[in-house]
Amino acid sequence: MKKNTRGRGAGDRKLPRIGITGSFGRGNYGDELYIKNYQYWFSPWAKLFFLAGLPKHSYLRSFKNQFVDMMDAVVLGGGDLLCPYREKIDGDFINQAYLRRPVYVSGIGVERNRPDVLDSVVKRWSKFLSHPNIRSVSNRDPGSAAWIKENMALRVPVRHHPDMVLALPLPKALRPQGKPVVGLVTRHIKSGKEYRILERAAKHLSQKGWRVRHIIGGVGAHGLKDYENAKLLDFSDKELVYTENLDDISRAIGECSLMLSMKLHTTIVSTMYGVPTISVNPVVKARAFMDSINCGHLTVPSSTDELMDILAGGIPDSPEEEVKKVKIEASEYMKDLCQLIWSDFLKYNPRLTNTLPRELITPEQRDFF
């Protein structure tokens, strides 16, 4: 790791500066929850800065480098950042400027929905992740970690843990009085045919006295795109939740008594609230999470009648104990990441204590420190 040569009296500062980066600020509900998770775990003892969207033009390189040089640490991830079969790699993912500081790659996933792998993509990621300033690498599922170990030789151990959003406290949500609510979360698709099964499920439950709530899992441009696309789900008697407030999205999920979800993080958040959840988009990352809470049988495609078969058998139970276990594991990872960043910061600030001062940690976090 490069030594701190900034010469700005960094040793006089008591709080590290952490730059967070990844697929952030683009409006996807799950990715924006990563930001809230970092705020929760880092803000009591560090100053946070947003690094995603650094200028790409070569003539602005000095501005970019100077901004990165202000950081004591860069945290990259999570989300499906590594796609082995897509030639283009987002500049917010493997930006060489990050490597000017200690980098902690956290909770990233490897897209494994297709078997093909481009050597050029593996080489570029391998070069980035093998840099001496990469301090740690972790993945949000065992399959992603195994893929990296198989395809790359890194300087640091590769760890896996449950999705970091599981370590985020959620706003309180109460089930409404009266009719139970079934939540539907869709993803952007080209054809409404993938929504036919959700329409059938909505009709089936509505006839049994349920309210139908269609929740848009995004904000900003991403949310608008999902909102426009949601019109392809044709069920006239549905209520629509479309908001720019992430906590309002979370509460809308937590108020449901059943969730039918096509997105990973609405699935994760739903289970965190104790809502029985069926994943209607069996991509690898969704299966990995549902398997981790012993709910692999509740991951179904939109092209078959499996969803209707499940509903015909009754509303599934919520795996609250299994979810509790993965929440603890995710929180333990966040604790370890906090301590690692703090310990590295001490190398340039030796007068500070070698453990995070308890007064800088929230009461909810103290069980993990």
Rank of each mutant, 00 (worst) to 15 (best):
Q177G: 02
C338S: 14
L260A: 02
L232T: 00
R366V: 10
S191V: 14
Y273W: 04
A312V: 01
T362K: 14
K172T: 12
E228S: 03
M262V: 02
N229Y: 06
Y59M: 08
L51I: 02
D119K: 01
W45H: 09
L15Q: 07
N65R: 07
I108W: 00
M308Y: 01
T267N: 15
F67H: 10
D226S: 05
S136W: 13
N65K: 14
D31K: 07
P176R: 06
Y38Q: 15
V300D: 03
R100V: 15
K335A: 07
S58I: 08
L76I: 05
A286D: 05
V284F: 12
S126Y: 10
T186Y: 01
K231R: 10
S126T: 15
G30V: 08
G209V: 09
D317T: 05
Q207P: 03
E199A: 13
S43P: 03
R187P: 00
K190V: 03
D90G: 14
M71A: 05
A10V: 10
L258I: 15
L129K: 08
C83Q: 09
E150R: 05
D163C: 04
G218M: 11
G30P: 08
A97G: 15
H131T: 06
T299Y: 00
F128P: 11
Y59S: 06
R213P: 14
Q177A: 01
R351H: 07
R8V: 14
K208I: 09
D234S: 05
K325F: 06
K36C: 11
A312H: 12
I197N: 00
Y333Q: 14
R135S: 10
A46Q: 04
L260Y: 01
N229D: 12
A202K: 01
L352C: 01
S144C: 10
P16C: 10
D92F: 03
M334R: 04
R155E: 12
K327H: 06
G274Y: 00
P55V: 15
N151K: 09
L240K: 12
V122G: 09
G79R: 03
F24P: 02
A52F: 02
A330L: 06
V269L: 13
P142E: 05
I148D: 09
V74D: 08
G7Q: 12
V68D: 12
K347R: 08
G254K: 07
V219R: 00
N281V: 08
L15K: 10
M1Y: 13
